[in-house]
Amino acid sequence: VWLARAGRVAVLGVYAAWYVTDPPRNDRDWAEEYAIPADAWRDGDVVHVRHVRNFRYRSESDYIPAWYDATYDLKQLERVDLVTSYWAGDAIAHVFLSFGFADGKHLAISIETRRQARFPYSTLAGFFHHYELFFVTADERDLIGVRTDTRGERVYLYRLNITPAVRERLFLSYVGAIHDIIAHPVWYNTLTDNCTTGILARAGARLRYRLDWRVILSGHTAAMAYDMDLLGPYDPARYPDFNALHAASRIIRPPGAVIDADYSNEIRATLPPPEGPPAR
């Protein structure tokens, strides 16, 4: 019996030693959609982003890779949208943000696992040192469009009700993280550093969200944000509770729709407009 116990202790010791000494890396053979990371930096009131991803999808596995460089004026940052995308049931969703500017530009940023070319995606592997963390920094036509038009997922979009100062701080926190991760890669962890925790930590909900079960069941992230008064403000007469708002916030693409230059305006045309004074 003692030999069996000693063996288990030894195995756990070896695993623990590997876990704390195994470094994340940027020099692996990545899947094509994660092969080229973005870089971002601030110059006064202007943010420069290199390698904004803008793939064109014929199908999930057949696409035309493309990237472009862009600049974004912090003085024109006027909205931040929370996007949740469901591919199965209601418990799990992918959650990310899109930043909108008064000049019509949008930049979507998604915290994801950086998958290697030789491995399929595994939810279980996200609990261990298997995926580096990656910021997919993309055009909405890519990051949202692949979900609404190519994969046919259920996609919802909500306006975040945060002050201009928090809005700017949130955006710049992503800018800093995107830049830092190029030289200092980090591990993705499904429990402690995932798409939901990364957003909420940056939005200033640090202490409240960590005790909420909806951090793990990411399909309920928008409901959690609603309870924290982070959505809207929406007309309470039209949307008296989260269920009403949720039903109205789904992006519905008409038959035969194509992803074109007006995609960002088209997906918002039928969504609930925020009403009343924003957060100050």
Rank of each mutant, 00 (worst) to 15 (best):
V83S: 05
L74T: 14
Y188H: 13
A183G: 07
A91M: 11
E78D: 11
A117T: 15
T150A: 02
Y174N: 01
G145T: 12
R154G: 11
G100L: 03
D73K: 03
F171T: 04
F128P: 06
T150F: 00
V136L: 15
S173V: 02
F99I: 01
Y121M: 07
P120I: 06
D142E: 11
F171S: 02
T123V: 05
S122H: 11
V155G: 06
Q116I: 05
R167E: 15
A88K: 08
R79V: 01
T190A: 14
A165L: 09
L172W: 02
V146G: 05
I144L: 12
G100I: 00
V186A: 10
F171H: 09
V80G: 05
D149K: 01
G104Y: 12
T163F: 12
R154E: 12
P120R: 06
L172F: 07
E140W: 14
S98K: 08
F134P: 11
N189F: 14
I182N: 00
L97H: 01
Y156N: 08
G104W: 13
E78S: 01
P164H: 09
E140R: 09
F119E: 10
R115A: 12
S98Q: 03
E140V: 00
E153N: 11
I111F: 00
I111W: 02
E168L: 07
P120F: 08
